[in-house]
Design a protein around this nucleic acid. Structure first.
Length: 184
DNA sequence: ATTGGGATCGTCT
DNA sequence: GACGATCCCAATA
């Protein structure tokens, strides 16, 4: 159980997206395994970085291994892992987790006991991620971080499911959604 | 099982 | 001033 190294995240978003599958997102006391992600790059009409740096997306142009969090539809937060190198404007959207720890806490926040972390907005709600997490370093060990991505030794799937990204109107044809296949 | 509408607000045009 | 990398519930079949 060690924080993921920043060098792993320094690649292009579509490649890093696959590497993030089966890693663990920890926001004590809650943790969940990453099972679905989407990649966004700079020359990608669906990406927030497509039109350059703004106040909102500044973190997306920062150092890899940090978090980019934004509010969508006025009510849900979405969390992204910044990839590439500083200035690239690439990121991987965390779309779904399989809960591991802190399920009671998640259920409390969500006000339900099922479907706790099955979408980008719901997983942020369950883990308590909001805009105050924007720019947080996901690779840090000290001082005690409140959010980290951990590698517990489970490798990414060799052949993840791929398909179009969800909820976008431009760049629809780019198949940069990746998902762990149903287990068993 | 599938579909459709409403909630809600920060950001950029 | 419009709209978005969404979610949930109610209504329909």
């Amino acid at each position: 159980m060690t924080p993921i190294s920043r060098s792993v995240l320094a690649g292009d978003a579509p490649a890093v997206a696959r590497l993030l599958l089966n890693k663990v997102l920890w926001v004590g006391p809650c943790a969940g395994r990453i099972v679905e992600v989407e990649a966004y790059t700079r020359d990608d009409p669906a990406s927030h970085s497509f039109r350059g740096v703004t106040k909102r997306n500044a973190a997306m142009f920062g150092q890899p291994g940090h978090l980019y969090v934004y509010l969508i539809y006025g009510m849900h937060h979405c969390a992204n892992v910044v990839t590439g190198v500083e200035g690239d404007g690439q990121a991987v959207l965390l779309r779904a987790l399989a809960p591991i720890d802190g399920v009671d806490e998640m259920a409390m926040r969500r006000g339900r006991t099922t479907k706790l972390t099955d979408g980008p907005g719901t997983l942020c709600h369950a883990l308590g991620i909001d805009r105050s997490f924007d720019g947080a370093d996901l690779c840090a060990t000290t001082p005690a971080p409140r959010i980290v991505i951990l590698d517990d030794g489970m490798p990414p799937p060799e052949e993840p499911l791929t398909g179009p990204r969800i909820g976008i109107t431009r760049g629809v044809e780019i198949p940069w959604r990746f998902r762990v296949r149903a287990s068993r």
